[in-house]
Computed example of a mutant assay.
Amino acid sequence: MSLQKKLLILGGDARYLEAIRLLANKGVDITLMGYDQLQFQQKNVKIVNPEYFSYSHLDGVLLPVGGTDLEGKVEATYSDKTIHLTKEMLIQTPEHCSVYTGAANKYLEKLTNQTNRKLTKIFQSEDIAIRNSIPTAEGALHVAIEKTDTTIHDAKVMIIGFGRVGMTLARLFSAVGATVQVTVRNKTAAAKAYEMGLQHVWISDLQKKIKDIDICLNTVPAPVLNKQVIANLKKDCVIIDLASAPGGTDFAFAKKQNIKAIHALGLPGKTAPKTAGKIIGEAMYELLDDKINS
């Protein structure tokens, strides 16, 4: 990677400070928007004003892990200014410029389609997603400890979704002594749960199997914790929803039922920003390196 590789980082949280440090040390030329409250010592890192910046030389645009909102606004922890990704910005970039994000909504997908720019979700890579599941799971355990008034040891835990994050959650909560059940949709997932020494519940049976659960952890970005399921929960059950917005929980109904429900977004950035930032930085370096060699 040479200094010729030019990356614009548009907004971001504490994770991105480590990602910036790592990428700068590897020689990437980094431009920042949404960091006007900070200063950086590396010569190949500069903070610019969106109004006076030329986008014509960029090889990539890195957005916050959460992407944009439905109007193009991005999270910018280190700025009081509102930062947007717009069509006017992207059409100024070279045709080979890619947009990198953690999550993408309809706005971002439409914008990249309209401007014919490649959109890459950095956590779609299996190895990156698995590595990122570790700080996510540790963050979820931290939330569970804070929001419950009993030990996690001996608690009855239901994990909805048995993908990358679900498996890591299951291992971690089992390791600290919880009785863990996981939801499955097929025989392969059921066999994997069995191999891990876990109890499994068919997702179609969730409503009747959730009655005695103390902690419910959701990883599915679909309305799985609906009114019918929530109505069967114990009143002292705690829901921790890790799914991307809008989550998989009917939060309004949970509140009406006096059931504690937390939408715990961005946990890696809150509980382990340095580790999570290193994961993002290394992933971005590989992606930019692949562009050179492709």
Rank of each mutant, 00 (worst) to 15 (best):
G66K: 01
G67F: 08
G67R: 02
T68F: 13
D69H: 07
L70T: 15
E71Q: 11
E71A: 06
E71D: 10
G72C: 05
K73W: 06
E75C: 07
T77N: 10
Y78W: 14
S79H: 12
D80R: 09
K81G: 06
K81L: 09
H84K: 12
T86Y: 11
E88L: 08
M89T: 04
I91F: 12
Q92A: 12
T93L: 08
P94D: 08
E95D: 12
H96N: 13
H96T: 10
C97H: 04
V99R: 02
T101D: 03
T101P: 05
G102L: 04
K106Q: 15
K106L: 14
K106A: 14
E109Y: 04
K110Y: 14
L111S: 11
N113I: 03
N116C: 01
N116T: 04
K118H: 09
K118S: 10
L119A: 03
F123G: 00
D127C: 06
A129M: 02
A129G: 15
I130V: 13
R131L: 15
R131N: 05
N132W: 01
N132P: 03
S133Y: 04
S133T: 04
S133V: 02
I134H: 01
P135W: 05
T136V: 01
G139N: 01
A140S: 08
L141H: 00
A144Q: 11
I145T: 10
I145R: 02
K147A: 08
K147S: 11
K147W: 06
T148V: 06
T151D: 12
D154T: 15
D154Q: 15
A155T: 13
K156N: 13
I159S: 06
I159F: 08
I160S: 04
I160T: 11
I160E: 07
G163K: 07
R164V: 14
G166P: 12
T168C: 02
L169N: 10
S174H: 12
V176L: 01
V176Y: 02
V176K: 04
T179K: 15
T179D: 15
V180C: 09
V182C: 03
